[in-house]
Computed example of a mutant assay.
Amino acid sequence: MAQTQSPRCRRVGILGYGQLGRFLALQLQSRGPPLGFTLAFVWSRGGVEGLPPPLRLGDLRLLPQTGVDLVVEVAHPEVIREHGEKILAHADLLVGSPTVLADPEVERRLREAAKGGGHTLYVPRGALWGCEDIRRMDEAGTLASLKVTMTKSPQSFRLEGHLRELLEAAMAAGGPVVLYDGPLRPLCPLAPNNVNTMAVAAVAAPRLGFDGVRARLVADPGVPDCHVVEVEVTAVGDEGRALSVTTVRRNPASPGAVTGTATRDTFWDSLRACHGHGGCVQLC
């Protein structure tokens, strides 16, 4: 009797070897194979010390030779801006820095690359609670407004431009300070590592998008060990009456950490969902 051949594990490459990259690499090595995933390589501009040489990719130009099926970016938006299209020509791509999609030209190029190459551009939910409900309301045309407030300790922010100066003033003030309150799109390049949850909201609600989603960023020394994400949704209900929902998520985080600890497990769950779509943009 002929034996049934087991399906091949999806080979996964990781771009970035910070807190999240290390966690995902460990998960793939210890738990991946029984779930149908195996670690192909890790690449990082800062090096990947501690990994055996066969798992180190020194040059991203060699990516097509690795036979990788899925590339997971947990480094910086600039990596996607520079290499995203080329990756999608060879593999599916999980974008851990969706703030890069606030650039309309980058979003257009990535969508076209996914469609043209038959590979999927995955966007992980991260810390966005109620993501699927937001997506459904947007598709139904009932979503009227969406506001996301992120509150972190000043040490957890990595900001650019004038927001960096505001952050320094907030640290001196010693109390909570609103760093930004307005449309999401202008905020993304100023806080590319801190507002990925907000960017996911814009992807989940394309009718509002990066210009329609309202973003509020708060620095508060009173929350040193967690990141607080508040999502306020307003939708049009029956007979034109408004439906409103507010959720508050407190994500435990080490002091000064950019990423909350619970987000690591969420990313792992998202990675496991990355298969079987093809040629589109997919929340996972």
Rank of each mutant, 00 (worst) to 15 (best):
W129A: 14
G209V: 11
P98W: 01
G118T: 01
P255Q: 13
G260H: 02
P77D: 09
C274T: 03
Q3F: 12
A273C: 09
A219I: 04
W43S: 11
R10I: 00
Y180A: 04
T38F: 12
S145M: 07
W43V: 02
R214L: 12
G240T: 06
P255K: 12
T66W: 07
G36L: 07
P224K: 15
C280T: 10
E239H: 13
A257D: 11
L15F: 15
T151I: 01
E78L: 14
H275W: 06
F210A: 06
G118L: 12
P77R: 15
R158P: 06
Q19R: 13
P255R: 10
H275R: 14
Q3V: 12
T4W: 14
E232P: 03
T142I: 13
G222M: 14
L93C: 07
A204E: 01
R241G: 10
A102L: 12
R56L: 09
K115Y: 08
P64G: 06
A140P: 00
L167D: 03
R11F: 09
T151N: 03
L20S: 07
G256K: 14
I134S: 03
K152F: 05
R45Q: 14
L179A: 04
V123N: 00
A169N: 08
A114E: 00
A113G: 08
A40I: 04
R185M: 06
D238P: 05
H119Y: 05
